[in-house]
Design a protein around this nucleic acid. Sequence first.
RNA 1: CGGGGAGUGGCGUAGCUCGGAAGCGCACCUGGCUGGGGGCCAGGGGGUCGCGGGUUCAAAUCCCGCCUCCCCGACCA
Length: 452
Amino acid sequence: MKDVTKMSDDFDRWYTDVVRKAELADWSGVRGMMVVRPYGWAMWEAITRAFDDMIKESGHENWAFPLLIPREYLMKEAEHIEGFAPEVAWVTRAGGNMEELEEPLAVRPTSETIIGPLIKRYIQSHRDLPKLTNQWNSVVRWEMRSRLFLRSREFWWQEGHTFHASAQEAIDEAAMILDYYRSIAEDWLAVPVLAGRKSPAETFPGAVHTLTVEGLMRDGLALQMGTSHYFGQNFARAYDISFSNKENDRELVYSTSWGISTRLVGALVMAHGDDSGLIVPPRVAPVQVVVVPIFRDDQGREKVERFVKEWTPQLKAAGIRHRVDWRDERPGDKYAHWELKGVPIRLNVGGRDADAGQVEMVDRLTRQKVGVPVEGIARRLAQELDDFQKKLYERAAKFQQDNSYELGTLDEVIAHYRDKGGFVWTQWCGESGNCLVCNRPAKYRVALAKAY
RNA sequence: CGGGGAGUGGCGUAGCUCGGAAGCGCACCUGGCUGGGGGCCAGGGGGUCGCGGGUUCAAAUCCCGCCUCCCCGACCA
């Protein structure tokens, strides 16, 4: 392909090239701040719709909490602020004369510290619990090094914050949401993930435990694709979020928080793409089927146009997101263009096809061309898209399998990562076998990976 | 934030060492030939040379400051 670095030559450049040439996103000129373009945003929208439906189904409600957080709020939970302090951006001046504010305001890096003190107003009794909140917003983290979608100073996400009357209920909530995230990754993005608990060092600041789903990218590095935290009463203690239980005793709530972000768009690029560009899973594809008309002159064009208009309404009725590319370009350009954009299925339609009452179907994975009658085409395409989604998942699952290893000693692990990537399973302080690091009986089975 | 590199029409770049009319390819616009895998011909438009200051008769070019981007580290969804 023109102008895109080959994946095998330089994965990082390939990634940047694809994200920009496929019109997903760009840098803005303000360091670390990205512009998400419509084609990229449409993928995020598909994810947001899917997830929003899931959480509404289980009783969560969307709120909007403030962008700016008073310093005193932010400082309350000691571990939390210690973890986030290095990446918080502050508003210290305002107004026409840029006057210094008396109290600096933090631009939210995440909203535990503003939701806590605000939500307590609405929690008096166990009858007010659980309180299941979520918000769709953007947050700012003053990252020192940025990559489109994967690490930008501003990113878009959802942050769920829930408050419960018992520890078990909160623990269950965090686990349930993690499974939603697994579903988003696997069922929607076609990226198989490892779901599990983070080590203490990687636990979210202020959390009792942090659960994540981790996907494997095609360069062998792992990417965190969603996190769900159980806080115990840590934030409740910091903000005095309490309720009267059934015995009329005052008790601190148990809380959770969880998030997925626009990073997932980067994940699907890196998990599925190839040297020709993106490969987008049908369920989140802004364009699932593209029609490329082929003709020589006006009569040819009219003929193809009439033919295409006969059956495209069926696609619309069937809810298949499709586009007919009437741009004045040559067919070869259009093929390359839509391959770069990763559209799962392309239909080439010329005069010969019109005569035969068929189209030439090409899928982005195999690129094999097959004739498909327009009779019943909507149903056929729906089936093809379904198959495509499955094949894409299977391909990624095989990749994950082929890049997973079982190793016993630290030396083996170090040697492994000298020239390979992937997931390495091993023992860490466990019942069977000995700990990789200290060689004492291991307690956990752990997966390791180089990560983004 | 540390170390290294770089900013020249939308994109990629030449020119900078040694100061003296801003060039090329792609993309774009117009017309024509074309059209089943990235085609061809002709004509055309578009640049405060990242920003600010300095040196000079004269700065893309030399000097100072800042901003942004890329690569490598530490930190991170």
